[in-house]
C-alpha cells in the first residue's frame, strides 16, 4: 500500500488542490483514464462538503485526505484505512480516498422531506429562495453525497459527533482487464 496524505485548511481554494492531487495519485496507481474524471469529481464533492461543514462549525480545524494506492504491498503493523472486501469475494486491488472532517454530523432533517423538488423531478432541488445550511443557491448539501455515491465504485459515509469520514474506492483493474465502468 502506498499512501499520500494531504491536510488542508477549510478554504474553498484548496479543494482544487485536493482534486488535482487525487487525480495525479490515481493516475500513478494505474486507474483507467476513463475513471479519472469520476475520481476528480467525487473527491471534489467530498472535500467541498467537508470545507462547507468546517466553515459552519470549526473553520480553524484542518481537513484530512488520504489517497491510498492498493496496488503496492501493504506495510505490516500499521493500522489505518481498511478497504472493504468486495461483495463478490474477489480480492481486488483498489485505489481508495478517505476524506475526514471534524465537523459534527448534522441530524438527518434538513434536506429531507421538506421542500418539493423543482418541477417535481430532481431530488434535493429547492424551488424557493431558501438555501439549506451548507447548501448553495438551491441545492441540498446532500446532493454532493448523492454525486459521490453515484460516482464511486464503493462508498462508505460514517457520520459521527466528532466528524464524518467519507471513504471512496475504485478498482485498479477489472477482471477482464478493462478499466472501471463509467457511471451514467
Amino acid at each position: 500500500m502506498a499512501l499520500v496524505q494531504l491536510t488542508i485548511s477549510a478554504l474553498p481554494a484548496h479543494v482544487r488542490t485536493a482534486r488535482l492531487m487525487a487525480t495525479a495519485v490515481a493516475r500513478r496507481a494505474g486507474i483507467a483514464e476513463s475513471a479519472l474524471d469520476e475520481i476528480r469529481l467525487a473527491v471534489g464533492e467530498a472535500c467541498s462538503r467537508a470545507v462547507e461543514a468546517h466553515r459552519a462549525h470549526c473553520p480553524g480545524r484542518p481537513i484530512e485526505i488520504e489517497l491510498i494506492d492498493g496496488s503496492e504491498a501493504r506495510p505490516p503493523g500499521r493500522g489505518g484505512p481498511t478497504i472493504p472486501a468486495p461483495a463478490n469475494g474477489r480480492a481486488a486491488k483498489r485505489f481508495e480516498v478517505v476524506v475526514s472532517d471534524r465537523a459534527p454530523a448534522k441530524e438527518p432533517d434538513a434536506g429531507r422531506g421538506a421542500p418539493a423538488p423543482l418541477d417535481g423531478t430532481a431530488n434535493g432541488v429547492y424551488p424557493g429562495e431558501h438555501t439549506p445550511p451548507g447548501g448553495v443557491s438551491g441545492l441540498s448539501p446532500d446532493v454532493g453525497l448523492a454525486v459521490i455515491i453515484g460516482l464511486a465504485d464503493e462508498v462508505s459515509i460514517e457520520p459521527a459527533e466528532d466528524g464524518t469520514v467519507v471513504r471512496m474506492s475504485w478498482p485498479l483493474t477489472s477482471p477482464d482487464g478493462q478499466g472501471p465502468q463509467l457511471v451514467g
Binding site: S48, L118, V125, G135, S137, G138
Partner: peptide, 13 residues
C-alpha cells in the same frame, strides 16, 4: 461540481 449545479439552479429560480 454540485456547487456549480446549485448556482445554475439558483439562476433558474
Amino acid at each position: 461540481d454540485s456547487t456549480g449545479l446549485g448556482v445554475l439552479v439558483g439562476g433558474l429560480k
